[in-house]
């Protein structure tokens, strides 16, 4: 064994932008993979010392323990306002928010839209798992029609509960956004693509051209009440048709 553990045999290493703290996420949850891709993107760009992150209220509230970065924990929904404050006084830093769908697309809709509309030079990472994970699986604005949650126990009824919200498509229409895309991290290929996308979005920040918005369609095995494998399958079959993966707005060449 010991002769195998040599630097020249190294094929994979945990990014130094992640701390050694054990993540509290449920088995199979997309938050862990999304953290990893963002950390690796920051690591590969060599900007760990120039990056300030903003954690949301939601399952990823403790993201500040996992990223070895200077980070601020925002009130529920206010991450992009907090990031605006940071970026305006620290314009040379890379600033990102990491937010769930309740945080970004329900209570924080106003801040999200206005931050994108001002074209703040920040990266917004939006984890869309169609549910409120942290508080125990209540309906989110992104919950699909007919999808069950603890506050839509018989499935989301569009007539009384409204329609699932595609905030990503909305912000793509705003002049202030520079790059808007929707990705996933549920397979190695998708995760690698997401990392490339995150790197590109962070690089764009140096250009001062506007907000970069990366949605990651994700899962919540615990509150969807599925195994991780079932959850990913369900996500492919139900979430992706409504939230199709791919670029929505790319910089004009």
């Amino acid at each position: 064994m010991s002769e195998l553990i040599k630097p020249e045999n190294l094929v994979y290493q945990k990014s130094k932008v992640l701390t050694d703290k054990v993540m509290h996420y449920c088995p199979g949850c997309g938050h862990g993979a999304a953290h990893k891709m963002l950390a690796e993107a920051i690591d590969e760009l060599g900007i760990q010392n120039e990056t300030i992150g903003v954690a949301p209220v939601g399952c990823s509230v403790l993201a500040y323990y996992y990223f070895d970065l200077d980070m601020t924990e925002a009130a529920h929904g206010r991450a992009t306002a907090v990031a605006t404050g940071i970026k305006r006084v620290m314009p040379d830093k890379y600033v990102f928010t990491y937010q769930g769908d309740g945080d970004l697309a329900a209570i924080g809709t106003g801040e999200t839209i206005h931050t994108c509309n001002r074209g703040e030079n920040i990266l917004i990472v939006f984890i869309n798992n169609g549910i409120y994970g942290m508080t125990g699986g209540q309906m989110a604005p992104t919950t699909l029609e007919g999808m069950k949650s603890s506050t839509s126990p018989f499935g989301r009824d569009i007539k009384t509960m409204g329609n699932p919200l595609k905030l990503t498509e909305i912000v793509a229409q705003l002049k202030g956004t520079y790059y808007v895309t929707r990705q996933s991290v549920h397979t190695p290929g998708n995760a690698r693509r997401t990392k490339r996308v995150l790197k590109k979005a962070l690089e764009y920040q140096k250009l001062n051209k506007g907000t970069c918005f990366v949605e990651i369609v994700s899962n919540c095995p615990s509150n969807w009440k599925m195994s991780p494998v079932e959850a990913n399958k369900w996500m492919e079959e139900n979430m992706f048709p409504f939230y199709p993966l791919g670029d929505i707005k790319v910089p004009e060449q």
Partner: peptide
């Protein structure tokens, strides 16, 4: 866009 946003911008910048 609102006082909610202003105070949270203050929070972010004050943290710097």
């Amino acid at each position: 866009e609102s006082e909610v946003a202003s105070i949270n911008m203050v929070y972010g910048a004050a943290g710097c």
